[in-house]
Design a binder for these strands. Structure first.
Lengths: 341, 341
DNA sequence: GTTAGCACTCTCGACGTAAGACTGCTAATT
DNA sequence: AATTAGCAGTCTTACGTCGAGAGTGCTAAC
């Protein structure tokens, strides 16, 4: 629907604007992108693109600035995918040369490398809501207390100390453990947020189990809430590299977004089936003036992760996408051999 | 060494400057603080205070601004301790009305309430390096794996899954557990960072225990490292309430400090025996232009915590101190009855 | 020792102006 | 019919001037 030349010009405007953060003039485009036609021709095209809603003019004697609609079509159709520089590849590979021993380390390293290479603020979200309970163990701590250990599919362990009811014997503990496993094994952790206490099952047994069961269910509920999300951000001070955050109100707004981890997690995890999602401006309740590029990865059985960057709409999408692609690749490489082992 | 009147005037300058963030004139002081002498007299005193290094003048026709030295003497000697307003007390109490079930909840709530009431950025540091091991449990997960649970003084639990050596029976597990407890109970978690493997003890026993013991010691080492510090910050966007951070470079520098958790922890935990420490400007490697007010609290047996605020040198010390005092009080109230229970 | 008064200095905002950046339009060209 | 050169018109921005206002330091009187 857009002519080839219009596409070329629009792409040039967005590219230049991403680089310079200031309005782009017809002369700029002519000199740097379209040598073979005059600035007057380009002016005509710019005018057309403006009335189509792709460009706006801050004032009459200024150049053009891309609208949100322009950024949308830019990332969907126009953008060139530039390869990473050698230095950037090196930087990423250096991070991945280390050996990590647990998921937390991976998360923090991924957050660091993304923010370092892209110069934007990075966000990594780990989500293990789909974790399945494999076995529950009750452990007498021999001081009137008991340790509840919940082992899940992904080997992530949750535990808590519970006071034992009076006169509780070791045998009763074993029995309680059996019952708990009968009820809960195979269930998903997330189910417990709205779990209703199964009186029917328990009332048929010793009365004194009741209190214990209630407490254990509380632990499960708590665990399922606490482990819903793990959100890590890195490089929040990178926002000051970008002129849009010279304005203090924008910066405050941005930082406040970063502090609302739950909302942030929602933005980064709420993706279609695509591996890579780009949300621009106020789309999908991304904060006004911000864009989010996020990717998805499996962090192991039933544990998925999302990672990406959040920054101004005037973001270097090409570079960010390349970085995220590369990291996706390295992460899957890292995780897959493990599974064959 | 300073005359009473000089003290009064210096205090007035600092108080006013904290409030208005702009240079204070002799007239200001005369009108708001020292009705009983003329502005000319105050001018003379100001001039004297300036040559003593307590005040500086941005330019000749401006008022005076307190120097770092002035802030030091202000918090040490001059400052009035104003009580909190009813609204502020309410706000704090409302937070403490909730029941918290674990240390993490307390930490996050304390961070939140401090930043909300003071309008500065709050920092809470939990340090449990001195945790003592109370008991170690080995738990057969019946799938060739074993769960190591370490219970410490402070009831903070650490655990990890370990692959069992081949042909390991339940009885051997019990035996291993006994040995582990014999060796490690009573030791401090922090000792394991440099722990040397006690061959003498183990070599006298079954050879196949060796591999297991090594793995467990690795777990202990890891745990002791990972649990060294827990640093939580809240309200980083509060910095924009304060004029000194209208300057983007200051803001960037401040945020970068917040991201270096280890350095931050050092600043907040490195206190004398005092319960409350105030560090101003570049003292004790606090970042240039920043001040830190921190308090200490016991978060349980052998677990100490530090909490406080970080903000501009021009900080409302009086209010911050009052807030931290109140929270200290409430925290000890909350923790002490627990111990009597 | 304190104070009134005054000259002096410096900042800050308002105003006007000139230069420069781009555009849109018109008319000529291909 | 599309393209282009040229030019008038508009708006921003930087700069310099100017006057008002704020505050001091000094002097001389109290």
């Amino acid at each position: 629907m857009l002519s080839e030349r219009k596409k070329k010009i629009l792409c040039a405007v967005v590219d230049s604007y991403i680089e310079t953060a200031s309005p782009i003039s017809s002369k700029d485009i002519q000199e740097n992108h379209l040598r073979d036609c005059s600035s007057a021709t380009i002016r005509n095209e710019l005018s057309a693109l403006e009335s189509m809603g792709y460009l706006v003019q801050p004032h009459v004697s200024a150049g053009r600035v891309p609208s949100q609609k322009a950024f949308r079509i830019y990332v969907d159709e126009l953008m060139h995918r530039e390869p990473l520089t050698v230095a950037e590849v090196d930087m990423i590979d250096r991070y991945f040369a280390q050996k990590w021993s647990d998921v937390e380390d991976v998360i923090s390293a991924v957050a660091k490398v993304i923010s370092e290479v892209t110069h934007y603020t990075s966000v990594v979200v780990k989500e293990d809501l789909s974790d399945c309970i494999k076995v529950i163990k009750l452990l007498d701590l021999s001081n009137g207390q008991m340790l509840v250990v919940i082992v899940t599919d992904s080997r992530l362990l949750k535990d808590a100390v519970i006071d034992l009811p009076q006169n509780f014997t070791s045998e009763m503990l074993v029995q309680a453990e059996n019952w708990l496993n009968k009820i809960f094994v195979g269930r998903h952790i997330s189910d417990f947020i709205n779990f209703r206490y199964p009186y029917a099952l328990v009332n048929s047994q010793f009365e004194q189990f009741n209190a214990l069961f209630k407490k254990i269910i509380d632990v499960l509920k708590k665990v399922s809430l606490a482990n819903g999300m793990d959100v890590v951000t890195e490089g929040s001070n990178n926002i000051f590299n970008h002129t849009e955050y010279k304005d203090v109100n924008n910066a405050r707004c941005f930082l406040s977004t970063l502090e609302h981890k739950d909302e942030l997690a929602r933005i980064f995890t709420d993706t279609d089936d695509d591996n890579l999602a780009i949300k621009i401006g106020s789309e999908d309740s991304v904060p006004e003036g911000c864009s989010v590029v996020s990717a998805k990865i499996n962090l192991g059985e039933n544990v998925s992760g999302n990672f990406g960057v959040i920054g101004p709409v005037r973001m270097n999408y090409s570079k960010v996408v390349a970085v995220l692609d590369r990291i996706s690749e390295l992460l899957t490489d890292m995780l897959n051999p493990k599974e064959q082992q």
